[in-house]
């Protein structure tokens, strides 16, 4: 394959990955890795590097809007970033030592978990009381619902959420994903933070988390500009198209459809991992 055809195929693939990622709510990076490894035969280490770069790009792009609207909780994000960045460093170091096939298998399972989680029913709940530790850390805050109207929310189980974030960081650094699903579980299910605040704060945190492992990947030679360029641009374009589609259609039906595509990709990764094809 020549560089030109490879670049064009990857650009198209990354656009599709960006669309699927934004419609399924999983992010483009997670879809780009099976595409690069299974379809194009790229080594999983290079795929991880390219996916992480695209995670930073989409995270910074979308977080810009949320920060301005004041939905993302900056203190909460900063506090939990201790856990995610520390986890990401550990994950990236494990990844440099682990064989490709075991990374692929673990990736498959993380993918299944994230897809299953995206189908879970989400109920909005707001707790008004906070734990003592949460108050000491100034985590409870408010977020705007409609213009000028702020809703106050409390925060519970800080230590549980912090530990889950550490795990999310390890997975992010090891597998090159934003691991948004795990971050949202930590905040939404464990710490009882409103869903909208959880998703936006998680997105906001992804850039810094990915940076911690990217610096390691850069020095280890995971980040190849020829692969990163089409992946990064494609995923960004795909995410933009995806958010337009989301506004025009009913996301519920789409989510089920895309969850099945992702299950299929995940089984492929696990199967090929066990066969030692990586």
């Amino acid at each position: 394959m020549t560089v030109l055809t490879f670049t064009l195929i990857m650009l198209l693939g990354a656009i599709c990955a960006g669309i699927i990622g934004s419609l399924s709510g999983l992010g483009g990076g997670i879809v780009v890795i099976p595409l690069l490894t299974i379809l194009l035969g790229v080594d999983i280490h290079y795929a991880i590097g390219a996916a992480l770069v695209s995670v930073i790009a989409t995270s910074s792009g979308s977080a810009a809007a949320y920060v301005k609207e004041g939905i993302a909780n900056m203190r909460l994000g900063m506090f939990l970033e201790i856990a995610t960045t520390a986890g990401a460093v550990v994950g990236a170091l494990i990844s440099t030592a682990a064989p490709s096939s075991s990374i692929a298998i673990l990736f498959g399972f993380a993918l299944i978990f994230s897809a299953a989680n995206s189908l879970r029913k989400k109920e909005e709940h707001i707790v008004t009381q906070s734990s003592k530790l949460a108050e000491r850390l100034k985590l409870p805050s408010t977020y705007p619902v409609v213009k000028g109207q702020e809703v106050a929310y409390g925060t519970k189980n800080v230590i549980g959420g912090f530990s889950m974030m550490g795990l999310a960081g390890v997975l992010s650094g090891m597998l090159g994903i934003g691991s948004g699903a795990f971050k949202v579980i930590a905040m939404d299910t464990i710490m009882r933070i409103p869903f909208k605040v959880s998703t936006t704060t998680s997105n906001f945190m992804m850039g810094v988390t990915a940076l911690a492992s990217c610096v390691i990947y850069l020095q280890k030679g995971y980040i190849v500009p020829d692969i990163c360029l089409p992946v990064m641009i494609g995923v960004l374009i795909g995410a933009m198209i995806g958010s337009k589609i989301l506004m025009a259609t009913d996301p519920k039906k789409l989510r089920i459809f895309f969850a099945f595509i992702i299950f299929f990709l995940a089984f492929n990764m696990i199967y090929n991992g066990f066969k030692g094809k990586f």
Binding site: M1, T2, V3, L4, F6, L40, D43, Y46, V224
Partner: peptide, 14 residues
Amino acid sequence: SNETVAYGRFTEND
């Protein structure tokens, strides 16, 4: 654009 690609094997840098 006309060179061939080879990303199938990872070589670690340091």
